[in-house]
Nucleic acid binder design. Structure first.
Lengths: 248, 248
DNA sequence: GATCCACTTTGATCTGCATCATAGCAGCCC
DNA sequence: GGGCTGCTATGATGCAGATCAAAGTGGATC
């Protein structure tokens, strides 16, 4: 795959630390040319595992198209999703040898990759990449801690409403539809994946989605297509005081 | 307070990004002298709030002595602790104006502080501080995600066992007692604070601690002093496959 | 020692979600 | 069409942990 591939949307690299020549406003020099020569693309089919927890991980990457999940698993099979990677999200740990959790493609997935060693060397020479990476990691940490509140203290209904709000708003942000129009989006996850994300069972997820639909908080077309007529109502159901943008 | 204060233990700054002259093996130059001139100490009494969520935060800091907690709160009062700061832990967000959660001293607390602006400038000039900060933030992110697994999928008993293991091992690491001796430590949290950390109620915490004591997994002297006769047994109760060091 | 207060323990009961079970539904292949 | 397969919905039941209530504990203060 290359930049001419129709699936590649340079917009998607806008918020990743690896800004592509086409979209980086901050730097115009040789460092970006260097980045361009370093990058390569990898594709995965829906359901494929990108990397297993504990495996050696010698690259860093950002999602170009598709959805990936980060999950942790206990010996007995209990699973908890700990992160959701949408287009433009970054994955990888400069300075770390092995992956801390499973990374799985839930849809067909294309990632823009860089080998870790040269990337790290480039970071040293190009301070703003490191700074951007710190910023993004702090954002992820905030999101993770927001999620801890959800997992520890929210009810099943609040969890579902929160998930809808986050996915819907992320989706709207990606399309640059910042307006007040009702959110319309497709759920990128199965009921089971949502359950793993929310610390619930798939049956409870299904029941609560039905309940929110019955109560008019969301509208459903098919299993995946969602319309939110009133975002404030949804946020109220989610128990969110912040109307700020939870970045996942 | 200054370096001569008996409460100050330079060892405690060993893992913080702000390495003090006394303990930093990596740099011997002027940059550390600069750090020394920038730092100042702040003390808080047990129960005092260091900073409220949303408040302007114009400093970064590391814990010298005592314990602080990071908590998030919903409008209706439900609380979730999202982090625990022990001596040597770092708090603050270079590049961020406001605090993302409440920081509270649960014991008497001394922090070693740096004003944010000069600290950020120093980071630019001194790359290894920024790198160290990225490393630490990635560690925190891993710990947060480990905690997500706990909050989402572990039983009350497993949660308590996990907490004991983490606090006990952190405590042992601080004292540099790396041996196989049984863990002995004091719980730095009330039952209620543990409940807020684990996403439980204080009654459940109390019951599960009693149950672990009855089953010989831990021994208690008073309410706070804990002895773990068999760490492997505790880890098994915690449902941990990793025997790696969960950093909180 | 007596009183107080914050914290903890334990018991009784309730409930939200898990678990178990079954059926509906859409896409796909033959 | 018919049958298969993966996903979803919904009903019946059970249980872990929440909630409500009361009593125990130990340190501080007078």
């Amino acid at each position: 795959m290359d930049l001419n591939d129709t699936r590649f949307n340079p917009q998607n690299c806008g918020s990743c630390p690896i800004r592509h020549r086409a979209v980086c406003a901050r730097c115009d020099g040789d460092e970006l040319d260097l980045l361009e020569t370093m990058k390569f693309y990898r594709s995965f089919e829906a359901g494929q595992t990108v990397i297993w927890s504990g495996d050696r991980m010698d690259f860093v990457a950002s999602v170009v198209t598709g959805i990936a999940t980060l999950t942790q698993t206990m010996e007995d099979g209990r699973r908890q999703m700990v992160g959701l990677l949408l287009p433009s999200d970054f994955v990888g740990r400069p300075g770390r040898d092995s992956a801390p959790y499973d990374v799985t493609a839930t849809t067909d997935l294309v990632m823009c990759c860089f080998r870790r060693k040269p990337f790290e060397e480039m970071m040293v020479r190009t301070p703003h990449v490191g700074q951007r990476l710190l910023e993004m990691t702090l954002d992820e940490l905030d999101a993770a801690r927001e999620w801890m509140l959800l997992l520890g203290r929210k009810t099943a209904r609040e969890k579902i409403a929160s998930l809808m709000a986050i996915i819907g708003r992320r989706d709207a942000a990606l399309r640059l539809k910042g307006g007040k129009a009702p959110l319309v989006f497709d759920l990128p996850l199965t009921r089971e994946a949502m359950a793993d994300y929310l610390g619930l069972t798939l049956e409870t997820v299904s029941r609560q989605i039905s309940a929110l639909r019955r109560d008019g908080v969301i509208e459903l077309e098919g299993k995946r297509h969602v319309l939110v007529p009133d975002l404030d109502r949804l946020l109220e159901e989610a128990g969110d005081d912040t109307d700020g943008g939870l970045v996942v």
